Amino acid sequence: MKREKLERQAIASELAKLDGWSLDGTGTSISRTFKFRNFVTASTHKLWHHILVATSFTAAR
């Protein structure tokens, strides 16, 4: 199945329908920040098994 790259406008339009997601400045990646009470909560959260670009003690992005 061949995939076509969406235009920046189409990506922005679809992301506007999703709470908390944003397109980076280059238009090549999307992100969302999740905030947790503390590191233990963040490290045991069900989202933890997904790819995380950056983490801190209380946030996962």
Results as ranks from 00 to 15, higher is better:
A10L: 11
V53R: 05
G25C: 01
K5L: 15
G20P: 00
A60K: 02
I30M: 07
R32S: 02
W21G: 00
S56P: 04
L47I: 14
S13C: 09
T55S: 05
G20W: 03
W21I: 12
S31E: 13
S22H: 03
F57T: 09
L47E: 05
S22N: 07
G20C: 01
T26I: 07
N38L: 11
F36L: 03
L18V: 11
I11Y: 02
S13R: 10
T58V: 12
L6V: 11
I51S: 08
T28K: 05
T58I: 10
D24I: 11
A42P: 03
S29I: 07
I30D: 03
W21F: 14
S31N: 13
K5Y: 13
K35D: 04
S56K: 00
I30A: 07
H49D: 14
S22L: 04
S31K: 11
I11R: 03
A60S: 02
W21Q: 04
F57C: 07
E7M: 10
E4C: 05
R61M: 14
T28Y: 01
M1Y: 04
K17G: 03
A59V: 05
D24V: 11
E14W: 06
A54W: 05
F34G: 01
A42Y: 00
D19K: 14
H49L: 11
H45E: 05
G25S: 05
S22E: 07
L18D: 03
T26K: 04
H45P: 01
A10Q: 15
L18T: 05
A60Y: 00
V53I: 14
S31I: 01
G25D: 12
R3W: 09
N38G: 00
I30W: 06
R61V: 15
L23N: 05
L15Y: 04
S56N: 04
I11F: 01
W21D: 01
R3P: 04
R61L: 15
S43H: 09
R8N: 00
E7F: 08
A54C: 08
E7Y: 06
A16H: 07
H49Q: 15
F36I: 04
K2Q: 14
F34V: 01
G20D: 05
R32I: 08
S22Y: 06
K5Q: 13
R8G: 03
T26M: 09
K5I: 14
A42S: 01
E4K: 14
L6K: 09
G20Q: 09
R61N: 10
K17R: 15
A54N: 10
E14I: 15
S13Q: 10
S43D: 09
S43Q: 13
L6S: 08
K2N: 10
H50Q: 08
W48S: 02
L15Q: 02
R3M: 11
I30F: 05
H49T: 14
R8S: 03
L6T: 02
S56H: 05
A54H: 06
A54V: 13
M1E: 08
N38H: 02
Q9E: 15
G20T: 00
G20E: 04
T28M: 12
R32C: 10
A59T: 15
A54G: 10
L23F: 00
S13K: 12
I30V: 10
A12G: 07
T44H: 14
A10E: 12
T55R: 12
S56C: 02
K46D: 13
A10D: 14
T33Y: 01
T26E: 06
